[in-house]
Design a protein around this nucleic acid. Structure first.
Lengths: 248, 248
DNA sequence: ATCCTATGAAGAATGTCAACTCGGATATGG
DNA sequence: CCATATCCGAGTTGACATTCTTCATAGGAT
């Protein structure tokens, strides 16, 4: 896209949603947004429709747009989708990887290892955690790139973004767990990453796929528990019963 | 959606594309479409953007919309995506199926068997072929429904539609192969279906997944050959190099 | 007499439209 | 073959029509 005003509105709203300024369920009114951004309502409308197809907002006719909100069922389904796609991508990565891809993956992995030992020793862990998730993203992106399937990469990135939004603003409100729990969990993630990297490095698609499957499943299990706890706040506020018609 | 005019435009254009009246690459100008449909340009614009997110048309800013056209790379990637999703769905179906789902799958399978023997004997096979693909779709949809993941179902159906459009209008222009070749291939498809059904019936997810994987791979192999032959007509006319920015 | 429900109007936000502006593509001339 | 001018179509805008929501009031029931 290089539509000046539509892009401006798209970037503006998208950034706010990803930063958590617009929380799930927040109403997005075209008129107030248009005055806020300084453009007309049409590009705002375009941006909202684009964001809807990204899965970040939901639009109901005559009712307006709002930041996407999921119930546990939808969340589970999305996680399953991500599991299917990302594990398949890991298998592809083990087949299609080049040396440069391998280096990129290892680079992210090494950065995560360094950050992990730093976090273990640091009194204030938050800023380092932010860097860690950054490198975690880099690790997963590197694998998707190594899979050499741009469409799949794009789709997985889409799901990652949705996941980030609906599971809370930038993951900054983790459930109440002790520091040692977090330490253990980070170590488990690192071990999983090692396993995945090793499988890709030795060009073993089935091992890479299974390792990624377990890894994602672990992440899902970790995410679903607090999700289920706050279930009452995530009930189906929208019933998009639009069955995608396969008819001509 | 229940936006009167936008829906009208959406259904209108979508139907034409799926019927093959608007072939791949066909330019879709908002003005002519709006006069043709009898609405303003705004709902046509909305419809085109919606169809873009469906993957059926591509919009380039300041240049207008056109029916989606793929190069072999994109086609391969989409097939891989479908392979990952649909095989995963088959595995889920083996786990989550209910009796009713099993009946639905068997129903479609039985219909395909009957049609196959009818086609083997019939002199004019085309109308029966149309019914066969209808039941084939029913078979795959039944499995996706049995997987109990609406999001995944929706996504796979989207890919099916794109596949139908880019691989030619309603599959009516098959490459030049003999009748016996087609007979053999239909039988292979039926056998694959039997295998998939059996695995789902005995609740064997890994077998169901693998069977579906092989089935889709066979379909892809069959589709890629004529695709590669006509490669010159499917070169990249559009270079949508828009890397999905993961940044905030 | 008080509370709940239903009906109505006022307000606001969305869908839609026609017109204006801007950018790219084609044609013409050098 | 390249530069310039013209034309066509998309992006954008503000205004109008439509519809959903909300609040208030009147009626009835307990």
């Amino acid at each position: 896209m290089k539509n000046v005003n539509s892009d401006m509105a798209y970037d503006y709203i998208r950034k706010r949603i990803l930063h958590g300024e617009y929380g799930p369920g927040k109403a997005l009114m075209t008129e107030s947004l248009s005055t806020e951004i300084g453009v007309s309502r049409t590009p705002v409308r375009d941006a909202l429709r684009q964001l809807e197809s990204d899965g970040l907002v939901s639009i109901r006719p005559r009712l307006g747009a709002s930041v996407k909100q999921m119930n546990v069922k939808e969340f589970r389904e999305m996680c399953d989708l991500r599991l299917a796609l990302e594990s398949h991508a890991a298998g592809l990565a083990a087949i299609n990887r080049r040396e440069a891809d391998l280096h990129e993956i290892e680079f992210a992995l090494e950065a995560m290892r360094r950050l992990n030992v730093a976090i273990l020793a640091a009194p204030q862990e938050d800023p380092l955690i932010a860097e860690l998730v950054r490198e975690d993203v880099r690790f997963h992106v590197a694998i998707m790139s190594a899979a050499k399937n741009d469409l799949m990469k794009k789709e997985i990135l889409r799901l990652h973004l949705i996941n980030r939004v609906v599971s809370g603003p930038a993951g900054c409100e983790r459930p109440i767990v002790t520091k040692s729990d977090r330490d253990i969990r980070r170590q488990a993630v690192l071990d999983s990453h090692d396993e995945i990297y090793a499988a890709i490095a030795r060009s073993d698609p089935v091992a890479a796929k299974q390792a990624m499957e377990r890894h994602i499943q672990d992440i899902i299990d970790g995410s679903m528990r607090p999700m289920a706890r706050a279930e009452s706040g995530l009930i189906a506020r929208e019933l998009t019963a639009e069955e995608m018609s396969y008819g001509l």
